[in-house]
Design a protein around this nucleic acid. Structure first.
Lengths: 204, 204
DNA sequence: CCCTCCCCTTGAACGCTGTTCAGCGCATAG
DNA sequence: CTATGCGCTGAACAGCGTTCAAGGGGAGGG
């Protein structure tokens, strides 16, 4: 086996070890020395494969993102009704977060180097998610223009995301975890209905 | 001045110094040695007044919470219309977060000792906020029972909170910061309309 | 007023981080 | 097979939160 192959394999081993440790102990429980022991290499070797531990966590997060995308995509594909599509997407997202809390939190808790832009695939992956949300929303909210649809898609994602995130942090459990599915139904159900008469707009 | 008074004063000095440093450098930029230098005491003295740095941050957070409560309460008091009350509360919350990003984030980023429950006042402060939300919502959503009102109140708070939080983390800016007011109008505006009575009160 | 005792303050030291780098050993090319 | 260069090594470094033995200063009794 060539050196390059061994390096690539070790890289994968480290990502897997980091994922396992994050899943078990959370992002805060990740230590370089533990990872080196898990992967059977020296601490210094980690830094020949990744710029720093954050870069390694980002590699784990890329996998997590992919898994979220698959879960949500599968959920929406199995549901024909547009309104239900939005709701099952929310459920799928919340379920993933509930089943993989540590990996899910790592995606949002990893410290990015100050001033460094988030990796491009972060924005791209979420952008794809927004498109999936926008499609059924366009059918349902014919009263809204494309810009408003785009905005509401992102607002709905952020809303579900916020409920799930607050429920996992134990400090302010706005919506208790078992009530999240019902809250998703309530919130998305309300947002989905197309009102002809927009209530009051902000007085400009 | 008695020893007890000097201690109480130093305690306040430390909280103020921590608040200033959080506001300037963020929670991650808080160092025990810097705080000691700011307050003119030794590092060890901090630990005679607080269990650890997290406890000091919690004291800062208590002030932040109080300020948020005042901002939101003032906003709702100035607005008679229930639907607009909900929206201006959202705006007030988002504005506070935009104007005091570091303090606001510290409330949600501070690490709680593992297994330790969040301080009681966390839940109580937010509970009061939920009651303020529930009042106008009860008037508007007559189709919902008390349990659903309670749930929707919390869901709406979490939704606005999630939008603001995602917009401040630079990784997934679901709703760009300048668009947050509009997103709040869209989301709350949708949730506020009672489906049965989605009648347009046509002004003759 | 002074003395004594006790508690509070002090800051060096400890243990634990992420990260580095000089030197070593091994794979690779000739 | 040998020489060379590159990747691996792990002790060392800087910096963090937190501790604690030792010293000093305030409060109360003589």
């Amino acid at each position: 086996m060539s050196v390059a192959e061994r390096r690539a394999e070790l890289r994968e081993t480290l990502i897997a070890a980091a994922e396992a440790r994050i899943a078990r102990d959370g992002l805060a429980g990740l230590r370089a020395r533990d990872l080196a022991a898990d992967a059977g290499c020296a601490v210094g070797t980690i830094y020949t494969l990744f710029d720093d531990l954050s870069a390694l966590v980002l590699a784990v997060n890329a996998r997590t993102f992919q898994a979220i995308g698959q879960t949500v995509t599968a959920a929406v594909a199995a549901e024909p009704d547009p309104a239900r599509q939005l709701i099952v997407m929310g459920h799928a997202y919340a379920r993933f977060a509930a089943e993989n809390p540590a990996q899910w939190q790592a995606v949002f808790d990893v410290a990015l180097k100050t001033g460094a832009e988030a990796p491009a695939w972060y924005a791209e992956a979420v952008s794809g998610l927004f498109d999936i949300i926008a499609a059924p929303l366009t059918q349902l909210r014919t009263d809204l223009g494309p810009g408003e649809i785009r905005l509401l898609s992102r607002a709905l994602f952020a809303a579900v995301h916020g409920m799930v995130r607050l429920s996992q942090e134990d400090r302010i459990s706005a919506v208790p975890t078992p009530a999240i599915p019902e809250a998703i139904e309530l919130l998305i159900g309300s947002a989905v209905r197309a009102p002809k008469a927009s209530v009051d707009r902000k007085p400009s």
